[in-house]
Design a protein around this nucleic acid. Structure first.
Length: 219
DNA sequence: ATCCCGAGGG
DNA sequence: CCCTCTGGAT
């Protein structure tokens, strides 16, 4: 993969998954609190499920202060269509409490502080830093990023550290956070682990996996 | 019926 | 490293 191809991929991904007014279809880049909570809730579920609980959740708990006072059982009712809702409801209430008590009501802006929040691990912290704050801490290589970048041919490795290095070498630093999000989004929407939707994919002409594993095996 | 694959805990 | 938590997609 050369930098020109990577740039073309970036351009097409952005056209398909537009980031308008600092807001994707469900994660706001300009509201760190909502961005953090929705990113925690996004683990192991679908975009549609997250979108469905967004308004009910934030109309009732619009701020860290409001969520910090919530009964986890009430939150659990609102998000019960997500997987792991029992743990997630506890995580986000505890996270809101910690934001209020330890960080003055503001979502913290460092990897270490973010990861001290309940339910926030390496991936969530990385996504929030790059999306909500525009801080390019690198590329969080989750399984979506790993699968999509490998299929496209942006890396030959399956080692997350090497994939991160390859992607950062291929892409301008200012696009890292955005590409991180775009690759995950594409992985969730089209380039799925099983039965990827080639007929809907706008990257087939650049895709190594399609070229070698799909097109190459048609009889 | 099985897989998904993030965070936390053992 | 291993396992568990869950609803939804397939």
């Amino acid at each position: 993969m050369d930098a020109d191809t990577a740039r073309t991929i970036h351009r097409r991904l952005l056209a398909q998954y537009p980031i308008e007014g600092g807001r994707t279809n469900f994660i706001p880049f300009d509201n760190p609190f909502e961005s953090l909570i929705l990113t925690i809730l996004s683990a192991q579920t679908t975009d549609a499920s997250v979108i469905a609980i967004r308004e009910p959740l934030f109309s009732r708990y619009p701020t860290p202060e409001a969520l910090a006072e919530a009964a986890p059982e009430d939150v659990e009712q609102i998000i019960r269509t997500l997987g792991f809702h029992h743990a997630k409801s506890r995580y986000i209430v505890a996270t809101a409490q910690r934001i209020v008590r330890e960080f003055g009501g503001e979502v913290p802006r460092t990897m270490e502080e973010l990861r001290s929040l309940p339910g926030v691990g390496r991936k969530t912290a990385n996504i929030v830093l790059s999306h909500a704050f525009g801080i390019n801490v690198g590329i969080a290589v989750d399984t979506h990023v790993r699968r999509v970048s490998h299929r496209l041919g942006m890396t030959d490795s399956k080692n997350p550290d090497i994939i991160e290095r390859d992607l950062m070498a291929l892409l301008p630093e200012k696009t890292w956070g955005e590409m991180n999000y775009l690759l995950i989004r594409h992985g969730r929407a089209i380039c799925t682990a099983r039965n990827p939707k080639h007929e809907e994919c706008f990257l087939c002409d650049l895709c190594r996996y399609y070229r070698e594993e799909v097109k190459g095996k048609e009889s």
